[in-house]
């Protein structure tokens, strides 16, 4: 009864011109898992997410979403199949209000009622956003902006969320709150989360399993506890 993995990549390879930024990455994320992708700056984490979400077509390899081959499908179509990518920095539209950002995220849902219900749920999850709903998104703090970015992804009713360094530039306390929120979300809703982080300690505390990328290739993988307990991995890749 082995269910299809929520997300699976096979030999995913990406080039920028002549430079190979991602080298045959195989990765499998079980449904409902919180999976970390770690690595130093420039290791290829963002490139991996962009290839998986359809923003950057891979040179070779495949992307499977719940067993279905979606290689080459553009990002806007993958959103409709439940794959949501929250880019580095959140990709919040600062020219729009908080609520307009959220409504934008919900536009792929059918029906006004479903959109309104999703909006209510996101506001329940992120109270500060409800208070600031009519304000410009540019007035938000870094943590609130990240909440807005995650909230906008949730508005689409995702099955898999890819998060690119949500803790970047945030205070440790805020980061911890966001990690708790992600854990809570997946245990309540069965959401699958792929979490890209440079900050290995934070990510491994939250994640079940992780991949470590080094120069575009998979350098290590396994359950978080194993990676944390492996002195070679700790020293070479996690900076712990």
């Amino acid at each position: 009864m082995a269910a299809d993995p929520a997300l699976r990549t096979e030999g995913l390879t990406v080039h920028y011109g002549a430079v190979r930024a991602l080298d045959a990455v195989d990765l499998e994320v079980a449904p409902g898992a919180l999976h970390a992708v770690l690595g130093a700056n420039g290791a290829g984490k963002t490139t991996f997410l962009r290839a998986a979400s359809g923003l950057h077509p891979p040179r070779s390899g495949r992307v499977l979403l719940f067993g279905e081959d979606v290689t080459g499908a553009p990002a806007e179509e993958l959103v409709r199949r439940g794959l949501l990518h929250v880019p580095e920095g959140g990709g919040v539209l600062t020219e729009l209000t908080v609520e307009e950002n959220l409504r934008l995220g919900g536009l792929v849902r059918r029906g006004r009622a479903a959109r309104a219900a999703a909006l209510g749920e996101v506001y329940d999850l992120f109270a500060p956003l409800r208070e600031r709903r009519t304000r410009s998104a540019s007035s938000l703090s870094g943590g609130e902006r990240q909440m807005l970015a995650i909230g906008r992804a949730l508005m689409a009713g995702p099955r898999v969320v890819l998060l690119d360094e949500p803790s970047l530039g945030l205070a440790p306390l805020i980061t911890r709150r966001i990690m708790h929120l992600l854990q809570d979300l997946r245990s309540r809703t069965g959401l699958t989360v792929v979490l890209v982080e440079q900050n290995a300690r934070t990510a491994l505390r939250a994640a079940d399993r992780a991949h470590v990328l080094d120069q575009g290739a998979v350098a290590a993988e396994g359950p978080s506890a194993d990676l944390l307990g492996d002195p070679r991995v700790r020293a070479a890749y996690l900076g712990l």
Partner: peptide, 10 residues
């Protein structure tokens, strides 16, 4: 405003 962020919202 932001074509890529818009695409990521579908």
């Amino acid at each position: 405003i932001r074509p890529e962020a818009a695409r990521l919202s579908g």
